[in-house]
Nucleic acid binder design. Structure first.
Lengths: 127, 127
DNA sequence: AGTCTTGTACGAATTGTTTCGTAAACAAAC
DNA sequence: GTTTGTTTACGAAACAATTCGTACAAGACT
């Protein structure tokens, strides 16, 4: 499998497409604008490059092209985390997890959810 | 406080310095070499740039300079995670946590450690 | 002193990322 | 059918990150 490495800007776009599903450049751009200051053609160009790289697929049947992510959210997130764990967390996933929890004040419900998830994992390990 | 944003290569170097403490360029380079293919002067240049940016301090008393990280591990990790949560995890820290746990097959001990950490946090919340 | 080794400094080439101006295609509105 | 608006395409500029060649300094070793 290819090791595609989205840049920061590309990640923002991927994240939007993962949320919204297939979208036009304008739709993506309108979301992007809220958090970022860039022109329409900049977004367009980025998405064209992402298409060349294989990060996005597009349907060009109509004049207005429809783009969608061609990499899965799970897998991409996994790759990024793996790299981050290696480069900044000295290979320790649990260090990353605790740092994320500590800084971030999750709600009680979120914490509970994570705890259940942990128990499920421990259960699997014992079999 | 300034928002310093180490690049990927810079993070690798920071991570080494966080582990080893103050070190010479050669010491850092020798660790770096194991995981990466780059010449000595490349590492040197990187560390000089990091010094200019304020990411590293150095002692130039002797001919061979000694560098150390001037940003804290905790805070830097926190910033990076925050950015990552925003751009790739749609603002959800718990999504990141579960993804990290799921992909990464932590040891039983690590899982236990995280669970204890969670309980401690829940305890604090109730007060 | 002369050679060797190890180090820093500097500058430049290379590569990757981001940004946007401008032009051309196309359709809808007048 | 000409104007107006929306879209894609292309190219180049601006910026940032990475890499390394080369020169020079300093101490260590004959």
């Amino acid at each position: 499998m290819k090791q595609l490495k989205p840049t920061e800007s590309e990640l923002e776009i991927l994240n939007i497409l993962w949320q919204k599903g297939p979208s036009t450049v304008r739709e993506v751009h309108e979301v992007l604008e809220k958090s970022k200051d860039a022109g329409y053609t900049t977004t367009l160009k980025l998405m064209q490059i992402m298409h060349e790289k294989g990060l996005l697929e597009r349907n060009t049947d109509s004049k207005t092209h429809i783009y969608k992510a061609s990499v899965s959210q799970k897998q991409t997130q996994g790759q990024i985390l793996q790299r981050l764990i290696d480069t900044a967390f000295n290979g320790s996933a649990s260090q990353l997890v605790m740092q994320a929890l500590g800084n971030h004040k999750a709600t009680k419900e979120e914490l509970e959810q994570i705890k259940q998830y942990l128990e499920k994992m421990e259960g699997k390990k014992d079999q």
